[in-house]
C-alpha cells in the first residue's frame, strides 16, 4: 500500500513537472502572455522602486512629505519628475507607492478569494447533498450582490474602511465564481477511477481532498487568481475614486480622487493621466496573463473568466 502510494506520488510529481514545462512552452508562444508578463515585471519594478524616493529626501514621502518650497500644483520638473499635487507632494513617489498598494490589494484579495472559493468549491463538490445545496445557495446570494455597491454601502455606513477590510470584503464577494468552477471540476473528478481507487483503499476524506483533488483543481484556481486580481484592483480603485477608500494609503484610485476632488482634473494632465493609465495597464497585464494561462490549461474550461 505504501509503496503504491509512493509510486503514485512520483507519477504525479512527474506529471506536474511535465505539465508545467509543456505549459510554459505554450505560454512562451503566447503573444498576450509575453506582453502581460513584461508589463507586470515593469509594475513590480515600480513597486520596488517606491522605496527609493523617501530615502533620497524626506519630501518624497508619498503621504506626508511636502516640498518645502512648493505648496501648489506644479508641472513636471527636474525635482519632481511628474510634478506635485495640490499641497506640494511628489506625484512620482505617489505613483510608485500606488503600484505597491495595487499589488498588495490585488494579490491578497485574489489569494483570499481563490482560497475561499477553492475550499468551498471542493467541499461542496465532494460532500454533495446538504452541504452542497447550502454552500451553493450562499454563493448565489453573494453573487447577486454587486460587490462595488455593497462595499460602497458598507463604507458609507461604517465609516472609512481600512484597506485590509476592503481587501477582505472584496475576497468575500469574489469567491462564489471560483467555487462554482471548482465545484464542477471536483464533481467530475470525484468519479474518476483514481479517486474511487483511493477510496476503496480506505483513504480518509481529508486525504482524498488534499492528496488527490487539490492538486488537480489547483491549476484552475491559479488561473482564476489572475482574473480575481484584476477585479480586486478595479474595485479598490473605484471605491477610492468615489472617495470611500482608505485615506491612509496612497493608491492610484486615491490619486484620481484627489485630482478630481481638488478640482485639478482638467488643468493638470500630468496628475490625471498617470494613475489612470497605471490602473488600466495593470488590470490589462493581469488579464492578458490570465488569458495566456487559460490557453495553456484548457481553452474549453473558460466560460466565465470575465471580470467586471
Amino acid at each position: 500500500m505504501s509503496g503504491k502510494s509512493l509510486d503514485n506520488r512520483r507519477v504525479q510529481k512527474f506529471h506536474w513537472m511535465s505539465r508545467f514545462l509543456s505549459g510554459w512552452a505554450i505560454f512562451r508562444q503566447s503573444f498576450l502572455g509575453k506582453i502581460g508578463l513584461t508589463l507586470l515585471a515593469l509594475f513590480a519594478l515600480m513597486a520596488l522602486c517606491s522605496f527609493i524616493p523617501p530615502l533620497v529626501d524626506p519630501m518624497y514621502q508619498p503621504m506626508a512629505g511636502v516640498d518645502p518650497e512648493i505648496s501648489t500644483v506644479t508641472g513636471p520638473s527636474t525635482r519632481h519628475w511628474l510634478g506635485t499635487d495640490f499641497m506640494g507632494r511628489d506625484l512620482l513617489s505617489q505613483l510608485l507607492a500606488g503600484a505597491r498598494v495595487a499589488f498588495m490589494v490585488g494579490v491578497s484579495a485574489a489569494f483570499m478569494s481563490v482560497f475561499l472559493g477553492t475550499a468551498i468549491g471542493m467541499i461542496a463538490g465532494y460532500m454533495g447533498k446538504f452541504a452542497d445545496t447550502l454552500l451553493m445557495r450562499l454563493a448565489d446570494i453573494i453573487m447577486v450582490m454587486p460587490a462595488l455597491v455593497v462595499l460602497l454601502m458598507l463604507a458609507a455606513l461604517f465609516g472609512q474602511l481600512s484597506i485590509w477590510f476592503i481587501v477582505f470584503f472584496i475576497a468575500l464577494f469574489r469567491w462564489p465564481g471560483v467555487s462554482r468552477v471548482i465545484r464542477a471540476q471536483t464533481l467530475s473528478l470525484k468519479h474518476r477511477p483514481f479517486i474511487e481507487a483511493a477510496r476503496v483503499a480506505g483513504a480518509s476524506h481529508l486525504r482524498i481532498i488534499f492528496r488527490h483533488i487539490t492538486p488537480n483543481v489547483l491549476p484552475l484556481s491559479f488561473l482564476y487568481m489572475t482574473f480575481q486580481v484584476t477585479s480586486a484592483i478595479i474595485i479598490e480603485a473605484a471605491l477610492a475614486f468615489l472617495g470611500f477608500g482608505d485615506p491612509r494609503t496612497i493608491s492610484w484610485g486615491m490619486m484620481l480622487q484627489w485630482v478630481w476632488k481638488t478640482g485639478h482634473m482638467f488643468n493638470a494632465p500630468y496628475w490625471l493621466l498617470p494613475p489612470g493609465i497605471c490602473i488600466s495597464l495593470i488590470t490589462l497585464s493581469f488579464y492578458m496573463l490570465g488569458r495566456a494561462m487559460d490557453e495553456v490549461l484548457d481553452p474549453r474550461l473558460r466560460k466565465e473568466g470575465q471580470t467586471d
Binding site: 472609512q160 468615489l242 472617495g243 485615506p247 476632488k261 481638488t262
Partner: peptide, 10 residues
C-alpha cells in the same frame, strides 16, 4: 472622510 471634505481629513 475624504469624500465629504478631503481638507479636514488631511
Amino acid at each position: 472622510p475624504a469624500d465629504y471634505d478631503p481638507l479636514r481629513a488631511m
